[in-house]
Design a protein around this nucleic acid. Structure first.
Lengths: 216, 216
DNA sequence: GTCTATAAATAGATAGAC
DNA sequence: GTCTATCTATTTATAGAC
């Protein structure tokens, strides 16, 4: 027998008469983050919402559209979280990287249900199957490249300025990203010790780790 | 139309008359590492082997058994790769951690097809569904805890000795593990720049990053 | 030991009632 | 806008031929 996803998470829709695309996307993110995209059925998503799949198909034509929608939203938020810091001219490489990692980590914790599925990059291939998804796939890849470019730029600036170790910018970037992105495996929102203060402490800790890993 | 997995990877079985469980596990690992467990069908695995699924079901009763077999093998190898170093008494915390990370990273690259699927911990819940899988699941979890304990111990030793920053051993361990485990997302065996020398360099780079992240 | 054929269940997607 | 009913394809697993 399969464990239900919904458990107490069914949306209270009293205040609104109709579902919105955003509410459906939220439910899909919750379901995908628990089971993974491929193993989640549309009926599972409907269960989280407390409705039947007819409602979902009214807003999204395919299951892949749900996945793409979650990715786009997650990346949009991620770029908003990190981009402004990456583009600040008043910060040195070390302080800039520290704040980027801190904000990135906070984003991953605050939007865990969206960011979790967005880490399963293998499953993107599944979601992109079918007619004319290429355009949105290109958008996702472009945003992901932009996001990584923020990190690549600050690391390269740091190396050029002599502030960071000048070994291999590429691997340093992957190391920093791994430090943060791996959170989707071990961080559980609403866990026993989860709180705003604790999240800030975790983010600061990871930022310190990453900065020390790259400084000269 | 779906992309085939097999492409040129069909096993040459000329030297052996019959398939072995190990060969089937290899094929499953290849298939799972490319598509993920849930999205891979038994027919996909059979395609990689260049046979039909009758052969696979002769050796493995369920799809979940394949996944569990891959996990057990991956973790067994991982413990072999890191355990001996973790238990050496002649190394200080810094040098011990450096070598553990180096060996761990090498293992991840050398056994990428097995280690990739083993990172998708969410899918373990799927594979463990069905009758009496609990015992093997417990074995997997025990091995995973043992593996993490190796890192926890060296980090705690380092903190106690004053060699590592004494902030939060738990998060430091997760940060180190993330640095390495995230490789399954970006490292592609047989890629354009892949070579033994390059793998050693990558492992050394990640080890340096991780050690610097924790030293006082 | 490996294959073909098939049973049984599940899931993506659609049609049409309300 | 949401639901029920259903079509169709896929997939896990089994039975039995070779």
């Amino acid at each position: 027998m399969r464990q239900p996803i919904a458990q107490g998470r069914t949306q209270k829709l009293d205040s609104k008469r109709h579902a919105s695309a955003q509410e459906i996307l939220d439910a899909a993110a919750t379901a995908f983050s628990e089971r993974g995209y491929a193993a989640t059925s549309i009926d599972d998503v409907a269960d989280v919402l407390g409705c039947t799949k007819g409602r979902i198909y009214h807003y999204f034509r395919t299951k892949g559209d749900l996945f793409i929608g979650i990715h786009l939203q997650a990346l949009e938020w991620a770029l908003e979280a990190v981009g402004p810091t990456a583009e600040r001219a008043d910060l040195g490489p070390e302080e800039k990287l520290r704040e980027m990692v801190h904000r990135h980590a906070m984003h991953l914790m605050n939007r865990a249900s969206y960011m979790g599925p967005a880490q399963y990059q293998i499953e993107m291939n599944l979601a992109s199957e079918g007619r004319n998804k290429d355009e949105q796939m290109a958008r996702i890849l472009k945003m992901r490249r932009q996001f990584e470019a923020y990190y690549a730029t600050v690391v390269e600036e740091g190396i050029a300025a002599g502030a960071f170790r000048g070994t291999d910018a590429n691997i340093l970037v992957k190391a920093v990203l791994g430090t943060i992105n791996w959170m989707h495996v071990w961080f559980r929102p609403g866990g026993p010790q989860d709180s705003t203060v604790e999240r800030e402490r975790t983010a600061a800790e990871l930022a310190e780790f990453a900065v020390r890993g790259v400084v000269a």
